[in-house]
């Protein structure tokens, strides 16, 4: 699956789509492949604060748990609760299935563009 050029990426394999002051956040195709079948997601609530570089939730595959790290800081203004019943949507459509939307304020982690992110995945093998 091609890495979409219009998105920004973290080294922990989240993507962010930045439109004005709002960031929509999900996980990359590389992440969903590495995790395998996703069976559970712990989501934050609307109104919670997201902090760049810190966990806002976690994701469980059959094999293991992994934290979801926020690429940006701000107030969580939307949560994709459909994932609670169907976390496998993140496997099926990683760049279509978003997890949270954040109204940004303050710091943003340094984010990678698609080419830099592909290079990172290549390196990690």
């Amino acid at each position: 699956m091609a890495t979409p050029n219009e998105l920004k990426y973290t080294s922990t394999h989240e993507w962010a789509k930045i439109e004005g002051n709002t960031a929509t956040i999900g996980i990359s195709d590389h992440a969903q492949q590495a995790l395998g079948d996703l069976v559970f997601i712990n989501l934050p609530q609307e109104g919670d604060e997201a902090v760049a570089g810190e966990a806002f939730g976690d994701l469980e595959s059959v094999k293991a748990v992994s934290d979801l790290i926020s690429p940006v800081s701000g107030t969580i203004c939307a949560v994709n609760e459909a994932l609670l019943d169907a976390p496998e949507m993140l496997n099926e459509d990683p760049y279509g299935a978003w997890i949270i939307k954040v109204e940004m304020s303050g710091e943003t982690e340094e984010l990678l563009d698609a080419a830099a992110y592909d290079a990172l995945c290549e390196q990690e093998g």
């Binding site: 395998g36 079948d37 069976v39 059959v62 094999k63 496998e88 496997n91």
Partner: peptide, 10 residues
């Protein structure tokens, strides 16, 4: 092999 492309659930 931990899994094949079809995945553990399948």
């Amino acid at each position: 092999p931990i899994q094949y492309p079809s995945g553990i659930v399948a």
